[in-house]
């Protein structure tokens, strides 16, 4: 759920911009030249993943996958989701301009948090534990995002409180669906290419070329 321009109060908007700028700066620090292609293609993939619709009864919801983005991208989730939101606002007329900071924050901060919480579990040798980590990351990512949307609405004015409650409720089924899809995705990644879970979140600047150079030394 993206918030549009004109809803939130000025302090909330400014807070969103400041915190998001910090998150993007942290993400960019670990985004060396060697990792830009990986981050870019993964970011494009997450963008396309949000176009996937899952039928729910007569209606359908689309995937959000911010939890999975957190597992794979860590802090890079901030710049990656920011870029996605910029493209959506500019070229698809969806979201808003002054709310870019808040919209990035409500998606990316939960992503980073669940990434920190569940990455270790997702990388465990047991496939079932990895799938469980995927479910928890996917579901908690959405629950936290929904709660943060509710929080920024509540901070903006008392008249938004009923809407904030509605937003939290509406995110419960989405959390379940995203969690299950994320669990399957992590199970597959765990089986096919487990190193994907560790591509972008090694400590900042590990410089793989340097590691290669060190090998023949002894």
């Amino acid at each position: 759920m993206h918030i549009v321009d004109g809803v939130l109060s000025a302090p909330v908007l400014v807070g969103g911009v400041v915190l998001t700028a910090g998150g993007i700066a942290l993400g960019l620090r670990s985004l060396t030249l060697e990792r830009v292609p990986a981050a870019g293609v993964l970011s494009a993939t997450f963008f396309v993943a949000t176009l996937i619709h899952v039928p729910v009864g007569p209606s359908s919801v689309h995937l959000i996958m911010n939890g999975l983005a957190g597992l794979l991208l860590s802090w890079v989730a901030f710049p990656a989701l920011f870029v996605g939101l910029v493209l959506q606002a500019v070229f698809f007329g969806y979201g808003g301009l002054t709310v870019l900071g808040v919209n990035t924050l409500v998606m990316a901060l939960p992503a980073v948090v669940v990434g920190l919480l569940f990455r270790r579990l997702a990388m465990s040798p047991d496939g079932r534990l990895a799938a469980l980590a995927g479910f928890l990351a996917g579901a908690l990512g959405i629950v936290l995002a929904g709660s943060m949307v509710a929080l920024v609405l509540w901070l903006s004015g008392a008249e938004f409180i009923p809407i904030a409650k509605f937003v939290v409720l509406a995110h419960v089924p989405i959390a379940l669906i995203d969690g299950l899809v994320c669990a399957a995705a992590v199970a597959l990644i765990h089986r096919v290419k487990p190193e994907l879970l560790g591509t972008l979140m090694l400590s900042p600047r590990p410089a793989p070329t340097r590691r290669l150079a060190r090998q023949p030394a002894p």
Binding site: A38, L42, V48, I52, L68, V181, A187, L188, K193, T199
Partner: peptide
């Protein structure tokens, strides 16, 4: 709206991510 569909879509997303990483290399 069933577990089978969600699992299939999850595998699809996972596969796209795996291929994305290989493409980026």
């Amino acid at each position: 709206t069933n577990l089978h569909s969600l699992r299939a879509i999850g595998y699809l997303v996972g596969m796209m991510l795996v291929r994305a990483l290989e493409r980026s290399e």
